[in-house]
């Protein structure tokens, strides 16, 4: 049996977990489910998760991907953790505005600003 290829690039910076996506298009629901599971495991493993998700490589995402982000946000909130989103291109930021999810998530223009925003 071969190991499933990760859909994320993960690194630790201070106490913050920084996540980037491997895929440019986050549309395939099987991939979205895997992304949700992988980030969910990162949240589970951390008693007080501080997570930064960078969309630097992402060109497209669907409502299913938004749903996965909402679930991750709820899990982080339940552990009194913190979630930040960053590096979202102008087309995708419009998707967040249309859905009003820019009110739910803390979105920063770049990774540096997002890292500085954690308390």
């Amino acid at each position: 049996m071969t190991a499933q290829q990760s859909r994320l690039r993960v690194r630790k910076q201070d106490q913050i977990t920084v996540v980037e996506f491997v895929d440019r298009n986050i549309l395939d629901e099987a991939n979205i489910a895997q992304i949700g599971e992988e980030i969910g495991a990162l949240v589970n493993d951390d008693p007080s998760p501080k997570l930064l998700i960078s969309f630097a490589n992402v060109d497209h995402l669907s409502s299913a991907a938004l749903g996965a982000l909402i679930t991750i946000n709820s899990r982080i909130k339940a552990k009194d953790g913190q979630l930040r989103l960053a590096d979202i291109n102008s087309q995708i930021i419009e998707v967040f505005r249309i859905t009003r999810l820019d009110r739910l998530f803390q979105i920063h223009p770049g990774t540096r600003e997002a890292l500085a925003s954690f308390s």
Partner: peptide
């Protein structure tokens, strides 16, 4: 309507809106 405050944290229902 997923844009209502009370529905913002629902994980589904945004496809039609988009």
């Amino acid at each position: 309507d997923p844009t209502l405050d009370e529905n913002l944290e629902c994980a589904s229902g945004r496809g039609l809106l988009l």
